[in-house]
């Protein structure tokens, strides 16, 4: 009975101060700590560190890649702008060249036409002059004939030379 009372007493006392269990607790604690330490330092911590480093690396890579792509996009835009400007300039140039060519053609054609016109005019004038000359000759011949006839009819003797001289003198007047 006394021993049982003792037992209940110790049971109600603080188990934390029961020194007989200290050795057991400390032994198992050290075992647990050593095991945890080896799990952590050999497996878990290097693995997590590697994962985190890898993630950091891939984030850095992705950022660099994004930066690169952005630079390339800017470059492409620049090239597009350049191409557009070049094309505009080219078009401008072609327009100017075409205009110049057309103008040159036009000028040449004008000149040619003018020249032709002038030639024709000259030809016409020449023909006219010829016609006039031949008409004058014909008139002179007719006048001579008529004068000679008239002289003959009036009873004179038509002297060829004096008739011609008279007709020529008249026609000059």
């Amino acid at each position: 009975m006394a021993s049982e009372a003792q037992a209940t007493e110790s049971a109600t006392g603080l188990p934390q101060l029961d020194f007989s269990t200290f050795g057991n607790q400390i032994f198992w604690l050290l075992v647990a700590l050593v095991v945890i330490y080896f799990i952590l330092s050999r497996v878990a911590l290097p693995r997590i560190a590697a994962v985190l480093a890898e993630r950091q690396g891939s984030i850095t890579n992705d950022l660099a890649a994004a930066e690169d792509l952005k630079a390339r996009a800017v470059e492409a835009e620049e090239a597009y702008r350049q191409a557009l400007a070049d094309a505009r300039a080219e078009a401008q140039k072609i327009v100017a060249e075409t205009k110049a060519a057309i103008k040159a053609d036009l000028d040449r054609a004008n000149e040619k036409a003018n020249q032709e016109i002038a030639e024709r005019v000259a030809e016409g004038e020449k023909a006219l002059a010829e016609i006039r000359a031949s008409a004058l000759d014909a008139v002179r011949d007719v006048a001579k004939d008529v004068a000679a006839e008239l002289v003959t009819v009036m009873g004179g003797k038509a002297d060829g030379r004096s008739v011609t001289a008279a007709v020529n003198a008249r026609m000059k007047g």
Partner: peptide
């Protein structure tokens, strides 16, 4: 009696602690 190497509830719960840490940090990763 509880000797130094006796398997006690201390042993059990410390083993569970180790197991939980193993599960989280080794199996979890």
């Amino acid at each position: 009696a509880v000797g130094i190497f006796t398997l006690t509830n201390v042993t059990l719960w410390m083993a569970l602690t180790v197991a939980a840490i193993f599960a989280l940090l080794v199996m979890g990763t």
